[in-house]
Design a protein around this nucleic acid. Structure first.
Lengths: 172, 172, 172, 172
DNA sequence: GATGAATGAGAATTCATTCAT
DNA sequence: AATGAATGAATTCTCATTCAT
């Protein structure tokens, strides 16, 4: 990937995640990336292709994170690691996650490839722990996660993350 | 409000909530509402005005719901009622809530007028219960709520709401 | 003519003369006249009909002015009276004249019915005075008149009318 | 400036000057210029921007003309040169001048940047000639000019320009 | 006579995308 | 690879006009 390709991806991610895919003209992406308008189409075929590329990168990053978690032997600790993902995100990863969360709400672009691998780990871990209804329990945990993630991604530094994390640990 | 105005609002809500504000052309709204496109602008000034009208109605509906909850005397029960809002939504209210949740992710349209009154009730109730850090605790509860709401609104009938609710009651 | 008809005509004249016929929506005329939008069309058939009505009134006012001037016996004095028309306009007549002058520049609406009767008086008077080329001389005088009229109508109180008039009298 | 930009400017000038700015749709300009409608907006931002570009070019042409006149040493001759500007216009410059004169009558677009430099030259020249009230005298001369210009631009070949010019020279 | 809701044609403007260079 | 001029299809919005009441 050339420097300009990366620049396009970064600008697009930034803009898509703050304004929404449909609200961002490709011309603005090009401008912010410091490239010509045509270049986006040479590299990514069309606007949707640009989104796909970003989403693909996102999936890989998540897969990597999940991979690490899978290696934890204790299922209890594995589950906890999953739940604490939202708290472990670096600020520079926020745009990607914000984009992923915002796309959920749009029929057209929605895609559960993001949550599926996470849920799998949870179900497996819960089964190891002999939970009766692992699937429903996994949904519950994923709900908590989504709630925390939303709070953190949207309120940013306004919310007291440590307090939230502390409460979460006590409750769970 | 004339019949056609209502029809426009309903179609717009339906479409905005499933595809996203920016992805819906006014021509489609008009078509679905069975009115001329010009009528949208006569009644709501512009597309944003149409969104505002929907959002305003939403705020009023929420205010009403909150009002009822405020009348619960036992603070513990009041908090529980708040947390269980996502579970008590009628299916025909889903579009409004989906729209509200999706707008959160768009800088341009985001507006915390929805969550503020809810948080207020929580903070007041927690104070009555002499919680040490009512504000952070309220944020925590709101996180749970958001998580459940997202799950219910997005997965709809796929997820086992009773199971979730049961789990929630046990945990909290 | 009802009060509302007059109100429509006045608002339309005011608006057409300051912004130009094509730049004024009928809705604005209705609003400013304090009547419903539909009423304009009931009374004047269409927007063009409204302009025609104003223009017709204008022609009548001018015809009246010319009539008075025709009654002057001395051809020299008659010519002078013509030339001084721009200086004798009441401020409340400015909008009508501004409209007439602005329409001149639009092919579509241009119409020399305004200047023709004036030129006729001039040519007749010049013939009485045995001018060699009365037609060309009339054009010259009309040019002066147009120049003064433009200056007065556009600069309004900014320009020193007495000074202009004095100069005109001396020169001619 | 590309060929197409020039073509747009020429078509727009032609159309604006004959029908008036507000009476000309951009689609017509594009058609006449042989370009896509979108191109107008790419190059000139919006319809007003197109007008501005034309007006700007006009100002530069006038500035050039004035510059030449400024170089005349004899103030008497300088004034005469100014007065005779309307007579010295080439037919292909008529559209520009017609546009300028028609815009005068529209509040929204009116702009005295056209007349100001001309008046300045006049005032300076009259001061050199020790005129008592140079400013009022300049207004007078500008009135003459405007009158002749209107006549020439609107009547075109119908009017006998030589005769007018001859009369003007004799009178002044 | 008067209202104002409603229409539909068209106007300005945007924007993804193509293409010659 | 990269540019930026150009396109054309949509999109938002305007406005003269009609019509039921």
């Amino acid at each position: 990937m050339t420097e300009k390709q990366i620049s396009i991806l970064e600008s697009a991610l930034e803009l898509f995640s703050s304004k929404g895919f449909d609200a961002v003209p490709t011309s603005l992406i090009a401008k912010q990336a410091g490239v010509s308008e045509g270049l986006i189409f040479r590299h990514f075929k069309n606007k949707q292709g640009l989104l796909n590329a970003i989403v693909q990168m996102g999936k890989e990053k998540i897969a990597f994170k999940i991979q690490l978690i899978t290696e934890i032997v204790d299922p209890q600790k594995r589950i906890q690691a999953i739940m604490e993902i939202p708290f472990s995100l670096e600020t520079d990863q926020y745009p990607l996650w914000r984009l992923i969360y915002s796309l959920k709400w749009q029929q057209e672009y929605s895609d559960d490839e993001f949550s599926r691998p996470i849920k799998e780990v949870l179900v497996n871990s819960l089964n190891e722990l002999k939970y009766f209804d692992a699937d429903a329990e996994a949904d519950l945990i994923m709900s908590y996660m989504d709630g925390f993630a939303s709070t953190i991604l949207l309120k940013g530094e306004v919310v007291n993350k440590d307090k939230l994390l502390h409460a979460l640990r006590k409750k769970y």
